[in-house]
Design a protein around this nucleic acid. Structure first.
Length: 435
RNA sequence: UCCUCGGUAGCUCAAUGGUAGAGCAUUCGGCUGUUAACCGAAGGGUUGCAGGUUCGAGUCCUGCCCGAGGAGCCA
């Protein structure tokens, strides 16, 4: 029996008899010729069946294959300029593992579909070449981000998903029953990262986070994945550098290893090319506000950047732009103040080009016990839930900084997606929980 | 939560208040190199739900449901 070969590797088996296992992608017919297209997750290959060259039953069996029927195919690999990709499979036999019934065909045809229909069939939509390419790039982005930290002696310390209290405001928390108590799904691993940093110096966590924001925009998910480094004794400049090096590293990896996927997505690599190199442009908040006002934004000093502001600003630069020193009032309670201008926070946001939004948010953490207690009270946060966090300021308080990078927005930017929902296999959004 | 747009065949969409249609998909027929093949034919409808106006409603009105885009919100 011929050995199983991945479609991606068929070109190395020219002239050999091989077996392919996968699914029927499409079937074209031309008189006494059949052109079934098979996919196996590694690629697509065109099969060829000539009626006069095979037993009638084999011809008939291929002819009756329905879209997405799972199959085992045997045939000979041959080079042919007329085949997409230059190689095709001269089919000698096919076995339908499960034939998709004629009266209940595969719903996603190789034609146009609306977003609602596609999202309802997300579990099947993933099989399409475009979604397949995005899955490949998502894998590469995650692998690259982890390699980046692993290669720099960061220790992965996983943060919990059930948490007793909010890292941020309480309005955006998903509450769940926890036996006789309440718990919340984490919004960030950040507070736990600070504990881990005191244990291992340089740490990161990577996992899903949850935000019950009733946001309905192309940049928002209620469940998304964040990679969050935290570095002991680091300052703002240290993590700005870390952030831009991370992003440049990820972009470089995708450009060098996933050019085929970018091509499938019709994403121009030239748009990403500059982002392989650091440094990235930097702006302090004061200047960002001035630029935005000169561009016609309504923003006033002291307010946070709106979605439109972020887009406007990002369009000024070919690379991601780092905005630092926001007013403390628009940032989280644990942000350290700038010693020179205490009304500002030592924080940084990185905005992706082309309006893909904030991809990194972080800063220097408040190390001072008294000030942290004051901030917790000012924000009306439940003190008891933060006692363990305050311990980090009682026992060897240390300056430290870190950030979180939202994986989906990075993928959305790199892939040039209209909406982040395509950057995660099964998006969770305001009005979508299935499939 | 608010604003805007939408819901008609499996899909994408048409249809002055007057017989509900096309393309694709499906099935059948034709074609020995197709490239989202092409050509011909057939089958396929509770027009999101409920009520109202009207001789007559896919179309107008009211309410509801679902979805999309955006806003607010969002380290």
């Amino acid at each position: 029996m011929p050995s199983v070969v991945d479609i991606r590797n068929l070109s190395h088996h020219e002239g050999e008899s091989v077996r392919v296992q996968g699914w029927v992608y499409n079937l074209r017919e031309s008189g006494k010729l059949l052109f079934p297209i098979f996919r196996d997750g590694t690629g697509l290959v065109q099969g060829v069946v000539v009626k006069s060259a095979v037993p009638a039953e084999v011809f008939e069996r291929v002819r009756s294959l329905t879209q997405e029927t799972s199959v085992r195919v045997e045939g000979t690999v041959r080079a042919d300029a007329r085949a997409p990709g230059g190689f095709e499979l001269q089919v000698s036999g096919v076995e339908a593992v499960q034939a998709v019934p004629v009266d209940a065909p595969y719903p996603i045809t190789p034609k146009e579909h609306g977003i609602e229909f596609l999202m309802d069939h997300r579990h099947l939509w993933l099989r399409s070449s475009r979604q397949h390419a995005i899955l490949g790039i998502r894998h590469e982005v995650i692998k690259a981000a982890r390699d980046f930290f692993d290669d720099r002696s960061f220790t992965l310390v996983d943060a919990p998903i059930f948490t007793p209290a909010a890292c941020e405001g309480t309005t955006t928390l998903f509450e769940v029953d926890y036996f006789d108590d309440k718990a919340y799904l984490t919004q960030s691993g950040q507070l736990y990262n600070e504990a881990a940093a005191a244990a291992v110096g340089k740490t990161y966590c990577f996992g899903p986070v949850f935000r019950a924001e009733k946001s309905k925009t192309r940049r928002h998910l209620t469940e998304f994945w964040m990679i969050e480094p935290e570095v002991a004794f680091a300052g703002l400049e240290d993590i700005c550098k870390l952030g831009e090096e991370l992003v440049a590293f990820v972009v470089d990896r995708v450009l060098s290893r996933r050019s085929r996927e970018l091509e499938t997505l019709e994403r121009d690599p030239a748009r990403l090319e500059p982002c392989r190199q650091t440094p990235f442009p930097r702006l302090v908040y004061d200047d960002a506000v001035k630029i935005l006002q000169s561009k016609g934004s309504e923003i006033q000093w002291g307010g946070d950047l709106g979605g439109a502001d972020e887009t406007l600003l990002s369009q000024e630069f070919p690379k991601p732009v780092l905005v630092t020193h926001y007013p403390s009032q628009v940032k989280a309670f644990y942000m350290a103040p700038d010693p020179e201008r205490p009304e500002l926070a030592l924080c940084v946001d990185m905005l992706a080009p082309e309006g893909h939004g904030e991809i990194i948010g972080g800063g220097v953490r408040l190390a001072d016990y008294e000030l942290l207690v004051k901030r917790i009270e000012e924000n009306r946060l439940p003190r008891a839930a933060f006692e363990w966090y305050l311990d980090l300021r009682r026992y060897g308080a240390f300056p430290h900084a870190g950030f979180g990078m939202g994986i989906e927005r990075v993928i959305g930017w790199i892939c040039g997606l209209e909406h982040v929902r395509e950057s995660i296999p099964f998006p969770r959004m305001l009005y979508r929980l299935t499939p």
